[in-house]
Simulated scan of single mutants.
Amino acid sequence: MLVGLAAFLVVFGRTALSEPATAALLVGSAVAAFLLICGGTVDSVTIGSRTVPWNVPLGAADGLLALVLVLSSVSTLGTGDSEVLLFAAVASVGGAALAWMGVQTARDSRHVDLEATPSRARLAGIVGLAGASMVGGVIVATVV
């Protein structure tokens, strides 16, 4: 994510940050990337006198990414095209799913199974869902 953000800034320059909405989306993505790195590399984070387990930064990162996704899709609604409305609706549904997953991860809920060695069937399902998501994204990107 950080490499993608850096590439965006290299291509569009610092002038891209002059628009408040773009700056907010980039900062939100950068903070989410930092939280993902933090949650993925440590067992816990100490904030003041409180120790927060690793899953809380990961869940917060998912929630922040969901917010960035929804806000970026809603910001495109000014054109009024039906394709843009479809994109915004699909992105909002995806953002809601990502936010739900983030809350469940932060709570260390039973709804998100964080087992160390998932079964082959679970891995096949994850790969299948990721592949379907990528194919769907390519279709939306080429059609819209």
Rank of each mutant, 00 (worst) to 15 (best):
V90E: 11
S82V: 03
F8K: 05
L64D: 03
L9Q: 14
G48W: 02
A141P: 04
S18Y: 01
A21W: 00
I126P: 05
L98F: 00
V127D: 15
A60V: 09
V144C: 14
A33D: 04
M1Y: 06
P57R: 03
A16K: 06
R120C: 10
C38Y: 12
A96N: 08
L58A: 06
G95Q: 01
S44L: 05
A7F: 05
V90H: 07
A32R: 05
C38W: 10
T22Y: 01
Q104C: 12
P20D: 00
L77R: 09
V127I: 15
T41N: 12
G131H: 04
V42H: 09
T15R: 10
W54N: 15
V135D: 10
G125K: 02
V11D: 12
A88M: 02
S72Q: 11
L17G: 03
V56H: 05
L86K: 14
V3R: 13
R14F: 06
L123H: 12
A60R: 06
S44N: 08
V138M: 07
S44E: 11
F34T: 04
A21R: 09
L25G: 04
I37C: 13
Q104W: 07
A23F: 03
W54F: 12
V56L: 08
S92E: 11
F8V: 09
E83K: 14
A106W: 03
R50S: 11
V56A: 05
A88K: 02
V138Q: 13
L58M: 07
A7L: 13
A130S: 15
P53F: 03
W54Q: 12
L9V: 06
E115M: 11
G136F: 08
V84K: 11
L85V: 07
A124H: 03
G63E: 07
A33P: 00
T51H: 06
R110Q: 13
A96L: 11
S119A: 15
V11G: 09
V140L: 15
V84S: 14
A116D: 15
T76C: 14
M134F: 09
G40W: 00
P57A: 04
L77H: 06
S29E: 04
G59N: 08
A60S: 13
A91R: 05
L77N: 06
C38R: 04
V45F: 07
S82R: 11
I37F: 15
L69S: 09
A96F: 02
A7E: 08
L69N: 06
L123D: 11
T46G: 05
T142N: 15
V70Q: 12
S18W: 03
F12L: 04
A121D: 15
A106V: 01
L5S: 07
P53C: 05
V42K: 11
S29G: 05
